[in-house]
Every structure is written in structure tokens, then in C-alpha cells.
């Protein structure tokens, strides 16, 4: 199983990420201990030089993590025929205990790496690297996460056993499973639909207000994060059934398949990018207080806000179009 080319590629990328970020994590400990901008000593200069390497490495990790996320979802989907009972990525991911945690860790890694890069960008804009401690504290979370993610991925691929009978998405999102997934699927449409559009509109409106006045940036960041969770819940609760035109099919992974017009590939990337940029607006706004960033942070925040509005707006638009086109009446 592990001999699948895509699996080899994923394992290679994750291991490399773990190695690079793990090394960066060790450096972060060192830096947090010895960093002293007032000093002109040799150690300080070496540290300053090394920060360039670390930011390049994390940038690389982020660059890899989004395609890796997509490739992982696709590979899990393509492996479904190997497992009795599996019909899409969910079945393959549930073939052992490590699949879903590996995917979630990958998702978290993407958002954290995006946040780190935004903080890093701001930090490099200020002449006194004002966010350096914040940045390296975050790296202390990012590095172990990358190691854990690689570990989970190895455990997942090494322990795949085609003899295992897994369950398809119908049972994960069905009433019997009794977990978060089935609770999401069971959300009443009458309540969740207005809630989703209210959350989306509130987020977009806050973003627009921020662009117009430069205020409420932090709120926009927080709302973007919440909106992401609401959006995922909404996909499971009603957007997916609308696309499948089946009231009982809630799977967010089957959306990635050709049978459903690759709808997932239109919905998820803008949502992910929009959310990451939106959270970035919050981060940039909160950095405004630093003296050296008073001018540049708002500018960065505005650029990110535009990106976030485009992403979230694109996601909302795609969802509205899919719902309007659907023959399903919920």
C-alpha cells in the first residue's frame, strides 16, 4: 500500500517538513533564550542570520502543505477501492485510527504556517524586528505539529491493511455513529442555513467595513476563524446534500470526486485561503501597536483583507450557485 507513488510523495514531503521544521524548532528555543537586539555580539549576529534560513524553511513548509493537503485527500479517495466498504476518502481514512488525525494535523499545519508567515512578513517590515518573540513562540507550536503530522502519516500508511472492512461516509455522517460528524449532519436545515449566511455576511461586512475605515480588523480575524468552522458545518449539514441532490448524503469528501463535478475543489481552496488571509488581518491589526509597524501593519492588513474577502466571497458565491442550481428542496 505504501508503494503507491502518491503515498511515497506525501511521506517524503511530510518527513522533509518534519525535519526542516523540527530543526527550526530547536533553533527557536535557542533564539528565545539568547535573543538580545541590544547586543552586537557574535551570537546575536549569528542568530540574526539564521532567522533568514528559518523563515525560508517555514515558507517552504507552507508552500508544500496546501498541495499536500489536496494530494492527501485525493490519494485517500483513490485508495477507496482497496478497502471493502470504502466508497470515498472517508472510508480509506477510517481504515485505521491514524487517517483522520493525520488529515486534521495537516489542516492545522496549513493554517499555523500561514499565520507564521504573515507574522514573519510583518516582523521583517519593522526595523527592530518587533514580533520576533511572538513569531518564535508560534514556531514552538508549529515544529512539533509538523513532526506529529509526519508521524501520523507514517503510521497511517504503514498500518493500512486491505483486509480491514471500513465504513463508508454514509455511516460516519449517519445517525448511528453518534460523533461530531453525525451531529453536524443532523443540524436542522432551517436553523443552519440562515446561521451560515448570517455568519458569512457578517464576516464579509466586517471585512468591508475594515477596508473602508481601517477599524474592526481584529474582529474580522476572529470572525474569519469562526466562519471557517461554521462553513465546514454548513457543508456537511446542507451544502453537500444540495450538491448531491440527496437529503441523506452529507459527506464533505465525496464532493472532491468527478461524479459531483469536482465541486469540492471549487469550494475548499477559496475557503481555506480566505480564512488564512482573514486570520492574518487580525494578526496584522494586533501588530499595529508596535511603533515600527504603525504605518506598515495596516497596509499589510488591507492587502490581506482584500484577499480574504475575495476568498470568502468566492466560497459564498460558489455555495449560493450550487444551492440555487440544485433540484433538491430541503
Amino acid at each position: 500500500m505504501i508503494f503507491q507513488p502518491a503515498a511515497l510523495a506525501l511521506l517524503f514531503a511530510a518527513s522533509l517538513n518534519a525535519l526542516l521544521l523540527g530543526g527550526a524548532g530547536v533553533f527557536a528555543l535557542h533564539l528565545l533564550r539568547y535573543w538580545n537586539p541590544a547586543s552586537g555580539g557574535e551570537r546575536q549576529i549569528a542568530l540574526e542570520r539564521r532567522t533568514w534560513l528559518v523563515s525560508t524553511l517555514v515558507g517552504l513548509a507552507l508552500l508544500v502543505s496546501l498541495p499536500a493537503l489536496a494530494l492527501f485527500a485525493r490519494t485517500a479517495d483513490a485508495m477507496a477501492p482497496f478497502f471493502t466498504g470504502a466508497m470515498c476518502a472517508v472510508g480509506s481514512l477510517q481504515a485505521n485510527a491514524w487517517g483522520l488525525p493525520a488529515l486534521l494535523a495537516q489542516l492545522l499545519l496549513f493554517f499555523l504556517a500561514a499565520a507564521w508567515l504573515i507574522i514573519n512578513h510583518l516582523d521583517q517590515l519593522g526595523w527592530d524586528t518587533p514580533l520576533i518573540r511572538r513569531k518564535y513562540l508560534l514556531l514552538l507550536i508549529l515544529a512539533p505539529l509538523a513532526v506529529i503530522q509526519a508521524g501520523l502519516l507514517w503510521l497511517y500508511f504503514l498500518n493500512l491493511n486491505p483486509e480491514v472492512i471500513t465504513s463508508c461516509c454514509g455511516s460516519l455522517f449517519g445517525p448511528e455513529s453518534g460523533g461530531v460528524a453525525s451531529d453536524l449532519a443532523a443540524l436542522p436545515v432551517d436553523g443552519s442555513r440562515p446561521l451560515f449566511f448570517a455568519a458569512l455576511l457578517a464576516t464579509l461586512a466586517t471585512g468591508g467595513f475594515f477596508l473602508a475605515t481601517g477599524r474592526l480588523g481584529t474582529l474580522f480575524g476572529v470572525l474569519s476563524g469562526i466562519q471557517f468552522l461554521v462553513a465546514i458545518a454548513a457543508v456537511v449539514a446542507f451544502i453537500a446534500p444540495y450538491i448531491y441532490e440527496q437529503p441523506n448524503h452529507h459527506c464533505p469528501f465525496c464532493l472532491l470526486q468527478a461524479e459531483h463535478g469536482y465541486a469540492g475543489w471549487l469550494l475548499y481552496p477559496p475557503l481555506f485561503l480566505g480564512t488564512a488571509a482573514g486570520i492574518g488581518v487580525g494578526l496584522a491589526t494586533s501588530a499595529r501597536g508596535k511603533e515600527s509597524l504603525a504605518e506598515t501593519a495596516p497596509r499589510v492588513a488591507r492587502g490581506l483583507a482584500r484577499l480574504a474577502l475575495a476568498g470568502l466571497g468566492g466560497f459564498g458565491l460558489a455555495a449560493v450557485v450550487y444551492i440555487a442550481r440544485s433540484n433538491l428542496v430541503l
Binding site: 502518491a6 506525501l10 514531503a13 533568514w52 525560508t56 508544500v64 494530494l71 485525493r74
Partner: peptide, 28 residues
């Protein structure tokens, strides 16, 4: 696209990983 991503991971990534430290050395 899946194939392209797989191939890029297997070929471009090793190149980038192998050159990033020397590049940083040169830049600093």
C-alpha cells in the same frame, strides 16, 4: 493534477531542500 503534484513532490522538493541551506549561506 494529482500526478503532477506527486512528481513535483518527488523531484522539486529534494532540489529545494538540498539547496536551501547553501542559498542561505550565500545570501548571508
Amino acid at each position: 493534477l494529482e500526478q503532477l503534484a506527486t512528481l513535483a513532490f518527488l523531484t522539486v522538493l529534494p532540489y529545494v531542500a538540498a539547496t536551501v541551506v547553501p542559498v542561505w549561506r550565500a545570501a548571508t
